[in-house]
Design a binder for these strands. Structure first.
Length: 554
RNA sequence: GCGCCCAUAGCUCAAUUGGAUAGAGCAUUUGACUACGAAUCAAAAGGUUAGAGGUUCAACUCCUCUUGGGCGCGCCA
């Protein structure tokens, strides 16, 4: 919170300065973290922006701002000086950092949380893989990113629901059902060919095997292949996700809006289409019902209902999003594989037709995982059954490594995943580097129990003994936890946290080499113990946001 | 053909969303365990940010073009 607090203070000072100068434009200044070679905590770029508007020299403005700032907020600023093209480099008083340390110790896992955000109801929809086969590694990336975003939003105080949209209706279900039936017949000894465009995977045979053993005396017509296949696949998906530390609040079945009818015999899809038609956002042409999505920036209009009377996928998806709003969500986050990008414009159009700003729907596209095995890329297809499942990868490299790996990169970047490499690196992995910090802290804290004379009450700690560069850097990084939260929310990407935690680990290990915690000086020992307690809190908070475990011993 | 995304060290990726000398891990080289955990630390080496223009006080970041890669363009889901 340090950075935001200082920025707020500066905002007021700069606003007054602008007023005095007769400048009415709004100023979007930033408070940066200066590069490593510069000895300052924050850098203000306002002078350069103002100089342009006021047509004066940046360094002149900078000096005037410094004079005012030092006078207005002496309790925050230790030192302020001009540098480079007109940056104002600020050094913050140590007391501010000590106060932040106390805040961390007091708030623990609530540090960085804003309870007032609770009135915003956010639905994060992710994975939503069709129940036609096991989750593959690509779904795993979506699962890791979506789950972490939900955790981050929840930590920020929002009222978050995690939902899986279950596409259990339509043609693909028919194909799945038939696939299971043919495998069943084959097992019963019938000589039938298995069609090339049916689901080839082994898991279909496993389903058929179960049905054979459970239904020895029953007639084939009595078996509901669709139900049985979906049941097995779904329970597999749920198990895989659970092993991946992903749990959903809600599983929303497509059948709810496509099959369930009200007292007038209408489904939600029927009603949504009628609503759009009545509103003039849909029209009939060539016997089909079209969505006028070009009105809101789509390339072309899209079919909602085919001339033969069947709805398209878009129709049920529109009804689904309408349903989301009806459930009171004020913000929607969707995670889609990048192959769905062509779909963004039309669903955003739908949102606007339903009367909402397109900004309430945030669509995060994540690029696919390029799977590499022994230098050869593996092409994945559910139909042909050629894929690496999420379970295989989790079993091989472990849940924590797998999640960390997926979350280490921005969703936008394509990700190359070499199984052999992931296994090889698992002993010198960045995830262990971060977890090791907590293990070290825990070890020291355990050891400290054998010592006497240590103060544990915060009010009796002399924090000003934490005055080395290493300690100051460490506290500063702890406080940056809040900045990382804000950045992750703004960009809707959890990868900032993996980067942040690696940096924190780096700074901690440097501190550890330089500053011994358990010494004969009980006052210093007490203060440093509080410092590493704070480090452990932040590491735990951060790893929890990524869904990664935090062992005390490794 | 049209549209979306990407291109950064030998490899995999960051860069606080337009800021100062572009940073990590892996791989390579060299040091450090007789006090809290060496899954660590210290140091070396590694770059015309694909290329060419442009905007800006300031460009890896924004705009245009070129090259190379991924993906999408159905009354499929």
């Amino acid at each position: 919170m340090i950075r935001q607090n200082i920025k707020d203070s500066l905002k007021a000072i700069i606003a007054k300065y602008l007023q005095d100068k007769g400048i009415t434009d709004r100023l979007n200044f930033t408070l940066e973290i200066p590069p490593g070679n510069i000895d300052a905590d924050f850098a203000l770029n306002a002078a350069m922006l103002i100089a342009k508007k006021a047509k004066t020299k940046p360094r002149t403005v900078a000096q005037e701002l410094i004079d005012i700032t030092v006078k207005e907020i002496p309790e925050l600023i230790e030192k302020a000086e001009i540098a480079g093209a007109g940056f104002i480099n600020l050094r913050i008083k140590n007391e501010i950092f000590y106060k932040e340390l106390e805040t961390i110790l007091r708030e623990k896992d609530k540090y960085g949380s804003f309870p007032e955000n609770n009135k915003e109801k956010i639905l994060v929809e992710f994975v939503s893989a069709n129940p036609t086969g096991p989750l593959h590694i690509g779904h795993g990336r979506g699962a890791a990113i979506g789950d972490s975003i939900a955790r981050i939003l929840k930590h920020l105080g929002y009222n978050v629901t995690k939902e899986y949209y279950l596409n259990d209706y339509g043609n693909q279900m028919l194909v799945l059902s038939k696939s299971a039936e043919i495998r069943f017949r084959q097992l019963k000894g019938e000589k039938i060919d298995f069609p090339a465009d049916y689901y080839q995977g082994r898991y279909v045979i496993d389903i058929a095997k179960r049905l054979v053993s459970e239904n020895r005396d029953r007639d084939i017509d009595e078996i509901n292949f669709k139900y049985e296949a979906v049941k097995d696949i779904l329970s597999g998906i749920k198990d895989n996700l659970k092993d991946f530390a992903v749990e959903f609040d809600d599983w929303f079945s497509e059948s709810k809006i496509t099959a369930n009818k009200d007292k007038n015999g209408k489904t939600e899809v029927d009603k949504t289409c009628e609503y759009l038609l009545a509103k003039g956002d849909a029209y009939i042409k060539g016997g089909a019902l079209w969505l006028a999505s070009t009105k809101f920036g789509d390339d072309k209009d899209r079919v909602l209902k085919r001339s033969d009377g069947r709805y398209t996928y878009l129709a049920s998806d529109t009804a689904y999003h309408k349903n989301k709003f009806e459930r009171g969500f004020t913000k929607l986050v969707n995670l889609w594989g990048a192959d769905h990008h062509g779909y963004v414009a039309r669903i955003k159009a739908c949102v606007q037709m339903l009367g909402f700003d397109k900004k309430v729907l945030d669509i995060i596209l994540y690029q696919f995982v390029l799977l590499v095995r022994n230098g050869q890329s593996v092409i994945m297809s559910t139909r042909t059954g050629e894929f690496i499942t999420l379970k295989e990868v989790v079993d091989e490299v472990g849940k924590d490594t797998c999640r960390f790996f997926f979350l280490l990169r921005a969703p936008d970047s394509q990700l190359e995943f070499d199984l052999e490499l992931a296994k090889k690196q698992s002993s010198e992995n960045p995830v262990f580097y971060v977890q090791y910090v907590n293990a070290r802290c825990s070890s020291i804290i355990r050891e400290s129990k054998n010592r006497s004379g240590i103060t544990t009450e915060i009010k009796n700690i002399n924090f000003s003994l934490l005055n080395t560069k290493e300690e100051r850097d460490l506290i500063k990084q702890l406080a940056a936890f809040c900045d990382t939260l804000a950045l992750s929310e703004k960009t809707m990407s959890p990868h900032h946290f993996t980067v942040y935690l690696i940096e924190l680990a780096d700074i901690f290990h440097k501190f550890y080499e330089k500053c011994r915690v358990l010494t004969d000086d009980t006052n210093l020992t007490s203060a440093r113990l509080k410092l590493i307690e704070s480090v452990a809190i932040i590491i735990k908070n951060g790893l929890n946001l990524l869904g990664i475990s935090v062992p005390d011993k490794m």
